[in-house]
């Protein structure tokens, strides 16, 4: 079973504490309808597990199939540089059905970001290296489509609905706890 080869670093967009017993990493593509459908499921999972879960999102734009996926990922990174990654992330997924250049600009404007600066960043590819690096790391970790989830480093091949993700998270949590007990009792 493929395993996540690149642990979370300061470059990642993370929700939750590093102390959480379970880490969920998602590789996603903003123009992929399945990723769009998965985001509310992830939100439900985040609400359910609260401080017991750490979540990171990485980009995996399949650009030839989804031409807007990469500009959208770069737009999220641009917002992230201004402390608004998750706001933009949610906004892009909420508008997935009508994604376009003007939509991205409108979302940036709605968040109070400088639309001209965004246009400039997209043109220069200022955030392209970050997006490419996510993608390449995902490929090496065995991402085979989107969305692709890793639960405590192991690829989750089941469905992305909240129930299935929650079951995988519960299992990883039990596993992590039994290891801690094992170390303590040794």
């Amino acid at each position: 079973m493929p395993e996540l080869r690149f642990p979370i670093t300061g470059q990642d967009h993370v929700i939750g504490s590093a102390d959480a017993p379970v880490t969920l990493v998602e590789y996603g593509d903003y123009q992929c309808p399945h990723c769009q459908a998965a985001w509310p499921e992830v939100e439900a999972v985040l609400r359910r597990f609260g401080r017991n879960l750490r979540y990171a999102y990485r980009h995996f734009p399949i650009a030839t199939v989804h031409p807007l996926a990469k500009p959208a990922a770069e737009t999220a990174e641009f917002a992230g540089a201004h402390g608004l990654f998750w706001e933009m992330h949610s906004a892009i997924y909420a508008n997935g059905h009508q994604l376009s250049g003007p939509t991205l600009a409108a979302l940036a404007s709605g968040l109070g970001l400088d639309v001209a600066a965004l246009g400039d960043a997209l043109e220069r590819g200022s955030y392209a290296a970050k997006v490419d690096s996510d993608l390449l790391g995902g490929i090496r970790s065995g991402v085979n489509g989107t969305p692709c989830f890793f639960v405590n480093g192991r690829r989750h091949d089941g469905p992305y609905e909240a129930a299935a993700l929650s079951a995988a998270i519960e299992a990883a949590r039990t596993d992590a706890e039994s290891r801690v007990v094992g170390i303590v009792s040794e």
């Binding site: 992929c32 309808p33 650009a63 489509g145 989107t146």
Partner: peptide
Amino acid sequence: PVCGDQMSLYNLVLPE
């Protein structure tokens, strides 16, 4: 189906 399509993925990995 497109999102999990093996050939589209390999197309992406071609430079590697």
